[in-house]
Amino acid sequence: MTRNLALLPVLATFAAVGSLALMDALMKGAALAAGVYSATLMRAALSAAMAAPIWLGTGGRWPGKRALRLHLLRGGVSACMALTFFYAITALPIAEAIAISFVAPLIALYLAALVLKETVRREAVYASILGFAGTIVIVSGRLGQGDAGDDTVLGIAAILVSAILYAVNFIIIRLQSQAAGPAEVATFHGGVSAILIALAAPWLFVMPGWPAMADIAGAAVLTVAGAMLLAWAYARAEAQVLVPIEYSGFLWAVLFGWLFFAEQVTVTTLLGTGLIVVGSFIAARRKRAV
């Protein structure tokens, strides 16, 4: 019975990763149709609007100072992360963008050392070297293609920035999930992001058409579901156990990229992803063995 309960956070994380991968596919279609800024703003706003009634209906109260600080911090990081990531997937195949973003857990190892004062072990250094090598393989494969242009270069730069922000997000979500419930986390995650992104609305926002809005609405539902599942799982299991499950997102990305956009996966993407994943599992396995 105890073993089954221990598996629940793992299964919840798998479900969350799948939900968010499908959200990425819907958002790519919406961003191509309506623009990255408008699609990102509407997704954040709808996500908050969907999560808020759940939070209030379950007795939600205004968060305390510590939880509110974490909500504001994660909302700001997530706003920038979303804009850079959604831009990247309009310029790159979804699977490639996801693969490059997998360096985030490795970056998080060093952020944990900086923020949480954890020791960077030798295994983490080896893992980082493998992760860096894998990223170089993927990027070189993309830039080596004949159709690589300015959009490709900007897309790669955007996904690298997004990966750094995602690493910061790993640190915040562990603290946040221990200070607030899943519905509260999802509500403030979308709400704070929407408010910050909306600051540029007078100059950049264009109302999406109905087909794009349908994709955005679906993406918002999946965002809320994914955020709540992750918050629930991270409150019940250590990050080092759950972070490796993020790599199942590549398989989902390959599937949805092929179904929605007929995207093909290159050999360099598979090779680079393999190096990054192996490096991350080395770091995670050795850390648990200590």
Rank of each mutant, 00 (worst) to 15 (best):
L72A: 11
W62S: 14
L72H: 08
A52T: 15
G76H: 03
P53K: 00
V77N: 12
T58I: 08
T58A: 15
G76V: 00
G76K: 06
P63Q: 06
G64K: 01
G57F: 07
C80N: 13
L68N: 10
P63S: 07
L68E: 03
M81Q: 14
S78V: 12
L72R: 01
G59N: 08
G76L: 03
G75R: 04
R69T: 13
R61C: 10
V77G: 09
P53T: 03
A82W: 03
R74A: 02
G57S: 05
G59D: 08
R61P: 03
A51L: 01
P63E: 02
A82V: 10
P53L: 05
M81I: 00
A67L: 02
G60K: 03
R69Q: 14
R74K: 10
G76C: 02
A79E: 03
R66N: 14
W62G: 11
P53D: 09
P53E: 11
A52N: 04
T58M: 15
A79H: 02
L68P: 01
L70D: 08
G60L: 00
I54F: 12
G64W: 00
L72M: 12
R74H: 10
G57Y: 01
L56K: 14
P63A: 02
H71C: 07
I54M: 14
G59S: 08
T58W: 12
L56P: 03
G76A: 05
C80W: 08
P53Q: 09
C80L: 15
W62K: 13
G59I: 10
S78F: 10
G75V: 05
A82K: 06
G59H: 04
L56I: 06
H71Y: 07
P53S: 11
G60M: 03
R69H: 13
W62I: 11
G64M: 00
K65N: 10
M50V: 13
A67I: 02
A67Q: 06
R66C: 07
H71L: 06
V77C: 11
C80M: 15
P53F: 08
M50S: 04
P53M: 07
G57E: 05
G64V: 00
I54Y: 04
P53N: 01
G60W: 05
L73Y: 03
V77I: 15
W55N: 09
W62F: 15
L72S: 07
G60R: 04
K65A: 15
A51Y: 01
L70Q: 05
L70R: 07
A79T: 00
G59C: 06
W62Q: 13
R61M: 12
R66Q: 15
L56H: 07
A51C: 11
A52Q: 12
G76E: 05
V77M: 10
G75W: 00
C80R: 03
A82T: 11
T58N: 14
G76M: 01
L70F: 01
I54V: 15
I54N: 06
G76N: 02
G59Y: 03
G76I: 02
M50K: 08
G64D: 09
I54K: 06
G59F: 03
R69F: 13
G76R: 00
M50G: 08
T58S: 15
G57Q: 02
W55S: 07
